[in-house]
Design a protein around this nucleic acid. Structure first.
Length: 283
DNA sequence: CGTTGAACCTGTTTGC
DNA sequence: TGCAAACAGGTTCAAC
């Protein structure tokens, strides 16, 4: 569920509560298969100070400062979290009722808790040294909000894959998911099955502008809530009412009135207007 | 290289 | 009504 705008919304919400707080205790449910090393998490996270909260693609990163048990030296650690399809990260009062499928409780030093709830457990969580964290975050591609025009064009044209597959590939662009890919392609009038290498310069330019505009507006509206997603304070997003293609099969295209169609591209449901987004001749 | 399908897991919606 | 199939915002891996 959570793509760049949703993760960004969660990060901004967490920033209102977490920096400067200390994690005093960690509790886990019995289902911890989404944690790389649950023992390490329990050993290294309690007692640490949260310095900052940031986003890298769809990953949330909490910068922690851990006091060495015996000495005075402070160590930097990263708490790396991915929300998968149904992950929620919220800050609540410690006596708030516990939602089903809540698997991690970080007790804070202000009588509140940071909770991770994830029914499907497609999320991921680990504690890592900055060097180990780099192994996960390093391979991620360009940030679609910051990439230059030249880099954007190079990333789109230097590979022979469908544009939909390219945009979803986290090593090409970090943060794009199924919703914002379809919305961007609809806005730029590009069929999802077109090859990136075959896009015309003008189309590439248009696509980059469409992606930026859509991601920025989605962030402004707090992301898209389809069924599970909520921000750090439990509030849903509002961008779903602005969707023009995603999950609109059979409904009229907002531009031309043609019925939106759905087809599988890159293994994912892809929604597009067959008139505005002309299909490629081959493939 | 790139594509496809399956797997991971739970919940909800759709179809007969 | 009831049950089974299809589908879901993501990622990863094997097979072709």
């Amino acid at each position: 569920m959570p793509e760049l705008p949703e993760v960004e919304t969660v990060v901004r919400g967490l920033r209102l509560h977490l920096p400067g707080r200390r994690i005093v205790e960690l509790r886990l449910s019995k289902k911890t298969d989404f944690i790389d090393d649950a023992v390490a998490l329990g050993d290294r996270v309690p007692g640490s100070l949260i310095r900052a909260v940031r986003r890298h693609g769809k990953f949330l990163v909490l910068d922690l400062e851990t006091d060495a048990a015996d000495g005075t030296e402070a160590r930097a650690e990263l708490l790396v979290i991915h929300l998968g399809m149904t992950g929620q990260l919220t800050v609540v009062a410690a006596d708030t009722e516990v939602k089903l499928h809540t698997h991690v409780f970080f007790t804070l030093d202000d009588r509140r808790e940071l909770r991770f709830c994830d029914p499907r457990r497609f999320g991921r969580m680990l504690v890592a040294t900055p060097a180990d964290g780099e192994k996960i975050l390093g391979p991620l591609g360009a940030d679609p909000l910051e990439v230059s025009e030249a880099d954007f064009r190079r990333l789109i044209t230097s590979r022979r894959a469908r544009i939909k597959a390219l945009l979803l590939d986290q090593t090409v662009f970090r943060g794009m998911g199924n919703i914002y890919t379809d919305e961007s392609l609809w806005r730029a009038k590009i069929h999802p099955a077109r090859l990136g290498a075959n896009l015309k310069p003008q189309e590439i330019k248009k696509l980059q502008r469409a992606m930026r505009a859509i991601l920025e507006e989605a962030i402004r509206l707090g992301g898209s809530s389809i069924s599970d997603y909520v921000g750090a304070d439990g509030e849903p997003g509002e961008f779903q009412i602005r969707h023009r293609a995603y999950d609109r099969e059979g409904k009229k295209c907002f531009r031309c009135g043609t019925k939106i169609r759905r087809m599988i591209v890159a293994g994912r449901s892809s929604y597009f207007c067959p008139k505005c987004q002309r299909a490629p001749r081959v493939s």
